[in-house]
Amino acid sequence: MRKLIVAMTATLMAFGGLALQASPESDRAAFEKYFTDRFKDTPKDDFINGVYSIDAASREQWVEIEEFAPYELSIDAGKAEFEKPFANGKGYGDCFENGGAVRGMYPYWDADRKEVITMELAINECREANGEEPIKYSKGKMADISAYMSFLSRGQLIEVVVPDDPDALAAYERGKEFYYRKRGQLNFSCFDCHGGGSGNLVRADKLSPALGHTSHFPVYRSKWGGMGTLHRRFGGCNRQVRAASFKSQSQIYRELEYFLTYMSNGLAFNGPGARK
């Protein structure tokens, strides 16, 4: 009996160890397979359309909404903001190459700073480097600039890299752990809703699959009546399960974005988007 317990414990530890030590690439392959197996009728590339990739009825409405997309005003406002010179005469174009079509470069691991850099963080760092005040991260002007840059970047592939660097891997692992941990009074993990619960109804709405989740931000959300960034959504999700949320562009949300975007490697960025 004792031998059996020892053997079982060793097996459990081995499996636990596997989960911890799995490479980002094996994580990604298993993640993708989970969703392509779960939604066999959805072509892999279509997961970037979120819940509309698995819900035909909602998709019809969404296609109609896209004809006069609610985020178009935000793209225009973002373009105007992007092209407006800073007080020192420089502008965003001096910080971002390719006229701002750089969504595909983010998020990335900065080995010197030992942290994840997101596009929204880079936008504010550009402002500050040119003597401008930083802007709020969740909505408003930030969402507009992000929407314009994402629009210019449509079609770029998601190609997040986790380099062979213990610090980068640790950041990836922290993001991964955050994603799978249950939290809040309702005791839900991100994956509970958008993995095991994806496709299920919450009241009248289907829960979207996590594959492709970060491709289409920022989004115009009917519930918000306006635009919001990915981190605004992270905060909203946390609060919905009655957990205290973290600040947009906090270290943990950037690491969550790093992990979750990596999971969609190979798919295309298609932001900004429109969601319920």
């Binding site: 636990g16 596997l18 989960a19 911890l20 799995a22 994580d27 298993a30 993640f31 397979k33 989970y34 991964k176 752990e177 799978y180 941990r181 249950k182 939290r183 009074q185 005791n187 993990s189 994956f191 509970d192 993995g195 095991g196």
Partner: peptide, 23 residues
Amino acid sequence: EESADAIEQEARESTLWQSRVPQ
């Protein structure tokens, strides 16, 4: 009571989360 429950939840999740990772 809520905070005590939250602390317990954190301790529980420090290992349980691994069981949810797709393999």
